[in-house]
Design a protein around this nucleic acid. Structure first.
Lengths: 188, 188
DNA sequence: GTATTCCGATACGCTGACGTTTCATTATGG
DNA sequence: CCATAATGAAACGTCAGCGTATCGGAATAC
């Protein structure tokens, strides 16, 4: 072994790839564009990543949005914090596009489906811990179906932000929180 | 005027376009493919629709899924019917792809955003009438915020089917219905 | 210090899609 | 019936992206 593959070049490629994804979504991703932005030669990209998709997948891995999940002392507060940071992220048009474009590819391509699921995990973790803290506090029934609850908590916001492409005002945010918290804390 | 533009040709084009959309989503749509499938010459397509997008938009207009909204006598029954037919539709992988691919374009292109909104209206109508019947029956508080309720009703299913790409079993369906109905009928 | 391997750059061929032009053929309104 | 306008077919140029090949120069392990 005389010269290892340059890690610097690799980083530059991935960085450029992420930049592109943020700017134009997964669909705007091109090898040429990565080369242009990164300054790395197209040939080198092929040598590091066999195909463009591999680079794309590697880039997606690192693009997960940070989701906060502080312990605020109440279910409602925890949910507000977690969902709030999700809403903040969803207000960036680019991130919305990233999300949907990956979602689209995930429907067609299994590798993307896996990557997409992984990227969504962090969101789930935040919400799940919020609910589990609620259980620990006694606010939420311990026999709750957490997976269902998750869908139930995310759902309304996803509809509003992603499909309707409407902003969620503070009033609406609180109103939805009301409904959700009430539903989660209501005994059967 | 000696010879009007052939309505038959126009129909064939739109039909072919819809076929393509169903098969491969909006992104697989090409003028060439429309020409191939419809048997209409590419030139003719350009003469009828200035650009490919116009044809695409025209095709989307006619591709709305039918949503049933029968009066079953109870809020729960109405919701089950309406959501059930949505779920049926969402089980077709093609439709899921159609939905997401249009959603994606809608984030970028205003014309598509409008078309997408129109296509979603039928879904809203069904759910909205279900809720309004609930109000009429006295099951639902009359001062409910219907728009919020709508997001709330669709949300969980969209998350499960679209994002997680998981099937919704009958058990889960009923469990979610439980939560939703309870939330809608609970007094403040 | 040198051999080995990587990097950058350029060029090439291929494919799919777009949109335009031309022209012979066909259908139809009047 | 016939002038008029639409259709189908083929050709053309353009452009973007993909993937490969080649080659001089540069970096690094040993």
């Amino acid at each position: 072994m005389a010269r290892p593959k340059s890690a610097a070049a690799r980083d530059k490629m991935i960085e450029a790839a992420q930049e592109i994804i943020r700017d134009q979504g997964v669909d705007g991703f091109t090898i040429d564009e990565v080369a242009r932005r990164s300054g790395v030669a197209r040939t080198t990209i092929y040598r590091h990543f066999g195909s463009g998709d591999d680079l794309l997948l590697a880039a997606i891995d690192h693009i997960v949005a940070e989701v906060e999940a502080p312990d605020t002392g109440s279910l409602r507060g925890d949910l507000r914090a977690a969902i709030g940071s999700l809403l903040d992220a969803s207000r960036t048009p680019e991130l919305r596009q990233v999300f949907v474009s990956i979602l689209r590819r995930a429907l067609v391509d299994d590798e993307f489906a896996t990557a997409f699921r992984a990227a969504n995990d962090q969101r789930h973790v935040a919400l799940r811990t919020a609910i589990q803290r609620g259980i620990a506090r006694g606010e939420v029934a311990p026999d709750i179906n957490i997976e269902l609850a998750l869908q139930f908590v995310q759902g309304p916001f996803l509809v509003k932000r992603l499909i309707e492409n409407d902003d969620v005002t503070d009033r609406e945010f609180e109103a939805l929180l009301d409904i959700i918290v009430r539903a989660l804390t209501t005994r059967t």
